[in-house]
Amino acid sequence: MPIRNIAVGHYHEATQPDALRAALAEFISTLIFVFAGEGSGMAFAKLTDGAANTPAGLIAAAIAHAFALFVAVSVGANISGGHVNPAVTFGAFIGGNITLLRGILYWIAQLLGSTVACLLLKFTTGGLETSAFALSSGVGVWNAFVLEIVMTFGLVYTVYATAVDPKKGNLGIIAPIAIGFIVGANILAGGAFDGASMNPAVSFGPALVSWTWTNHWVYWAGPLIGGGLAGLIYEFFFIGFGNHEQLPTADY
């Protein structure tokens, strides 16, 4: 049962070298991801005189985020697990795969990484604004809330299936690219409606730097609920009972 595995952790954990190294890795990975993802949107808007909300802009955003997340997860995987997302960290905590204190360290690092990335973008682009996530015309706040839950559920479920599951076998090799692909696909599905965040850190940095907080709670509550549900369901049904068999490599 995953509930029995949930742990607060000891306060000494916050000062252990491996925990601090993991937090630093999360900071750098999130900075890399947000700088490339947010920067691609800013670059496209500049090249098209502000017309970023186009089919081409959506495809460009999906590709940039998929590639950037693939790299960000890969470079952090052997140090921190490559969460790069508070919702992923929360899902790991709900599933009993990370302590609360270590998770808080990750959250702080992820939010700082996103903020520093947006500050660097603002400086290097000569003061261009880092656009905060916002709802499109005709999209209600509850529509976006459910959309974020569903998209983040898919993301964290993918993380569990390819990276966390102890019976993942050779699937672990493709975990970073699978995670990047699901984010890119979700951006194509939901980007035209609410920006398709799936990541509170990705939403926090641009909102803080531009000081735009309209409906910001959606980009926290939706991903955290979706990530928590994915962690709970996967851990409970597919890991907790140990009742699924690993496929032979030839069957992949």
Rank of each mutant, 00 (worst) to 15 (best):
F33A: 08
L105W: 00
L69I: 14
P86D: 03
G39K: 05
F90P: 00
E129F: 10
A36D: 09
A132Q: 04
Q110T: 03
I28V: 15
A68S: 14
V71D: 09
L121S: 01
S131L: 15
A36M: 14
K46R: 15
A68I: 06
A109G: 07
G37Q: 09
L111K: 04
A60Y: 08
S40L: 04
A72R: 06
L58R: 00
A43S: 14
L58F: 13
L69S: 10
A62G: 08
L121I: 10
F35S: 11
F33R: 01
A56W: 14
V84L: 10
W107A: 13
V88F: 03
G39P: 07
F35D: 04
G76W: 09
G81C: 12
H65Y: 14
V75I: 15
S137F: 12
N53A: 15
L111S: 05
A132S: 13
P86W: 01
S80H: 10
A56M: 13
T115A: 09
G127Y: 11
F35C: 12
S40Q: 10
F90E: 01
F70A: 14
F44I: 09
F90V: 08
V116T: 08
T130L: 06
T48Q: 04
S114F: 02
G50N: 07
G91Q: 01
E38W: 00
V71P: 11
E129S: 13
M42E: 08
I79L: 13
L119W: 07
A23Q: 03
A117N: 01
T125C: 08
F90Y: 11
T125G: 06
L121Q: 00
I28P: 00
V73D: 05
S74G: 14
I104V: 15
A52L: 06
I32N: 10
A77I: 15
I94K: 03
I79N: 09
S29C: 14
I32P: 01
I98T: 13
A25G: 12
A56F: 13
A62N: 05
L101A: 06
I32C: 13
S136W: 05
